[in-house]
Design a protein around this nucleic acid. Structure first.
Lengths: 112, 112
DNA sequence: TTTAATCATCGTAATATTGCAATATAATTA
DNA sequence: TAATTATATTGCAATATTACGATGATTAAA
């Protein structure tokens, strides 16, 4: 019926899928890269940079914020977002864990 | 109107988003992990393992195959899938590239 | 306090994804 | 050839995502 059966999977699998979903849109990738590059940004700047409507950017920012990848602090009229280093590290760990699973089980070209 | 504006983003951003989308479902993560663990698998085995309907598994396998993460070879009545090492390496490269962007621009705790 | 500026939220339309039953396809076996 | 086995495809219903205009909330300046 169109709803993901999370109960069938492990916490790690569900967690990884959620984070991957955050990366699964080019606008959110672009936002993260811009955040990294400029160390902080505001919604308005991103509207110029990306070419999407202000409401759309705001929505993408919220998704990134909801899973903890970024955090925002009010600066006068605007809001300054930045990467959350702890979460970012955790994300790297999860992905690297997945990648290592293959690299270890598949030492040479003997695989597949 | 609900359709991703890919033309606004770079090829790398779109590519990364597509791959992330493949990871953005726990069933597909589970399939990849099972493939890695058992070095090969068939649709039927996965139905037992995951508890989703055969049609659903087949659909997830197709998505993974379409972006090149896995490849299947016919073995009699069944089909044996396995990881595509080249693509897997490319995927790692893309993600590590993204991760490195932050790690380099953010040497210490001076960030954020 | 009005005005302007900036970001968030709401409501809605278009599109995409998820899951499964039913059915189709392909290969092996009787 | 007919039956069996294993996977793929189709069609559909439920749900989720994407995008944006309109509107709301908040802060700074006039």
């Amino acid at each position: 019926m169109g709803i993901t059966k999370t109960e069938l999977f492990t916490t790690q699998q569900n967690e990884l899928a959620l984070i991957a979903k955050a990366f699964a849109h080019p606008a959110r990738i672009a936002i993260l890269q811009y955040l990294v590059k400029s160390k902080s940004c505001i919604n308005g700047t991103l509207v110029q940079e990306l070419g999407l409507a202000q409401a759309t950017i705001s929505q993408h920012l919220r998704e990134l914020k909801e899973i903890g990848l970024i955090q925002g602090s009010i600066e006068g009229v605007s809001v300054s977002y930045c990467i959350n280093p702890e979460k970012w590290e955790q994300v790297q760990g999860l992905f690297n864990g997945l990648f290592d699973e293959l690299n270890n089980s598949c030492d040479s070209d003997s695989c597949c």
